[in-house]
Design a protein around this nucleic acid. Sequence first.
DNA 1: TTTTGAGTTGTTCGA
DNA 2: GTCGAACAACTCAAA
Length: 450
Amino acid sequence: MTNIWWIRRDLRLNDNAALHSALEAGSVLPVFILDPAFENLSPRRKSFLYEGLSALDKDLRKRNSYLVIRKGKPIDALRQLFDEIKAEAIHTEEDYTPYARERDALIQKLLPLKLIQGQTVHHPKIIRKQDGRPYTVYTPYSKVWKAQLSKIKLHPAPDRIDSPKGIRSEPIPAFETNPFFRAGEAEALRRLKKFTDSPISNYADDRNRMDLDGTSALSPYLRFGMLGMRQAVNEALTAQRSNANAKGAEIWLNELIWREFYIQILYHFPHVAKTAFNPSLANIPWRNKASEYEAWKRGETGVPVVDAAMRQLKETGWMHNRARMIVASFLVKDLLIDWRWGEAWFMQNLLDGDLAANNGGWQWTAGTGTDAAPYFRIFNPVLQSAKFDPNGDYIRKWVPELQKINAKQIHAPWEYELNIAGYPSEPIVNREIVKDRTLSAYNISKEKVR
DNA sequence: TTTTGAGTTGTTCGA
DNA sequence: GTCGAACAACTCAAA
């Protein structure tokens, strides 16, 4: 009997729990469904997915199998396919977003759908406080997460996958290769090795430097499961045992745990997808000036580090983590634009756009999220720029208009009478008014609830 | 129930 | 240039 391996966010053969489960049951048909819900993703992001599917198909063909693509609502496509091949069951990696949970619950009523845990190390419902409620603070959560970690034994990629022949498949949609991020499992593993070979040793310091390749840049691969979370954690644990890498590995492991923390937050508090986690900050009177939002999206705010980061996003589909915080703080605190506007833009454009992590990050910056937002957490983009891009190399790379500006002047060119062709002479907002304006808007929301 | 210690990622100011 | 303190008040988690 044939079992369907329904691929969603696990485009890999190594350590794939759903594939493993399907293989134990018999012959396996790998299936990916092009859901109309993908339509509003950026072309770059869709390309990353399609290239990933193409890479997966090639890997499957080396193992006597192939990828079947179907289009439409998953429930319809699966019922059709299920009848067509007289399948025994559908095995799939459990996904925890509200959309996925609703979709899968509906399908489970009609078809034998087996949800296999694999997206996270710990299932989001496992880690709880003594009183049984989920954690809402990262540090105690992470301690328990680590304490409950047992030895990770990875499932190797299967040598051979036997699949029924000749099942109809849609073609993989055309895609453009992204020179900054090639998709696929082989590329993910290459990057993982490259990162743990070297940058991880300086990760503690360099991960914040926008001008260096100090981060793992694995997020797009983790997002689509071209690399599994367990594989990444396993590497972090291995690196922790080496003297040179121990500190960096510990910090990297914590970053990985942040991923699971936010997956868990979304799982237990699905309202965060729509509104503030903290109810007292759900009624901030945003300014929401559309022209400023557009300038932010285009990278034309007149603040070099913000513009560089926004252009990096547009050109590559990825943004350095430090830069994400800076542009988010600028949109929310300096322009007083609803964090959900920024969240939506990131979601559309980031290759790694993931509801849980993206929402968690935005709510954190906005101060509406799980940790209490100290009033003083308003980033000064000029200071951040000077600190984390000291020579201005990151800015020059993405904002060609500033190519000739020196390291001293590049962070705040408006302070020098430079007259730069094609670049705003002043930032779109005067920072002197920002702090008061933002704090009073936040206080209005707090008072409404009180 | 009460108490206690702690909480990712900053900025500004003055010594 | 460097350093430490102040910036508020609140909620969470555990004892």
